[in-house]
Amino acid sequence: MIDFIIGIVASGIRMSTPSLFAALGENIAERSGVLNLGVEGMMLIGAFAGFIGTFVTGNVIIGILFAVSGPMVMAALMAFLSVSLRTNQLVAGLAIWLLGVGLAALLYRLTFGVVTVAPTVPTIPPLDIPFLSSIPVLGPIIFHHDAMIYLAFLLIPLTHIFLFKTNIGLKIRTVGENPKQADTLGVNVNRIRYMSVIIGGAFAGLGGSYIALVTTGSFSEDIAAGQGWIALAAVIFGRWRPFWIVLGAFVYGMVNATALGLQTKGTTIPFQFLLMLPYLLPIAILAVMYKKSVAPAALATPYKRGER
């Protein structure tokens, strides 16, 4: 039984990783005042780019570089629309989402055609941390994962330090709360927003590539399965603070892992209802949390010099 629970928690961590990456990045973009609803699309592009990069070169590091750059281009387009052209951010984000969904599917099909057996790449293997992985319970839960999870673990405090302890982080937050004031202080509002949105894109790419390169080892059109939207929910749940966002993503991963665990154990509950839980739970959490969370004041508002 204890092994079963350890297994569930470990797999919960793995399942929360894609949305964790994406949420940490989206948080940076939102902190600068840009709500990017296109996370799901960027994750799909990341998943495809990571897959094709690894498939062609056989090198997973190059694959991940691909996965990071593709969504960065998408994010740059998002920034161009929402920051430079001041398009309604919700509309621009929806456009990025749908473009990502279409483009990832199109490029995959153009590359591989209609295949009966999906092409695969070897998944990134788990990497035990010496000594730590042999700690009972904690070892297999935290220190028996692949390198990308350790990167995610690392990025949690790093994004916190980046946002709250560095000069640039302060600029990002000021731009998100009061762009006019930031502008008066000599901060280039547009440049900060561009940068934050593009960093968000890179993170979404990491999340997408995790699905393709660790979870499945292959690509399909519906591979993201709403995890980009879960990431958006996790940011709200975490009230725009990295450590709380982790909790949001982790709860999602745990529910998912428990549902799948119950399924393999054999239960009378139809599996569709179990699969619904990861989508219903964020809704329930949002319902409880929403009023308490305070978004960055300038979130989803374009900034134009000289306007009130």
């Binding site: 399965a225 939207w229 958006l232 929910a233 569709q272 619904m276 809704i283 949002l286």
Partner: peptide
Amino acid sequence: LGVSEIIVTVLLNFVALL
């Protein structure tokens, strides 16, 4: 409860299909 409808409506698509 003041919950933004965007994320909720998106997630409910998955629920309905399941």
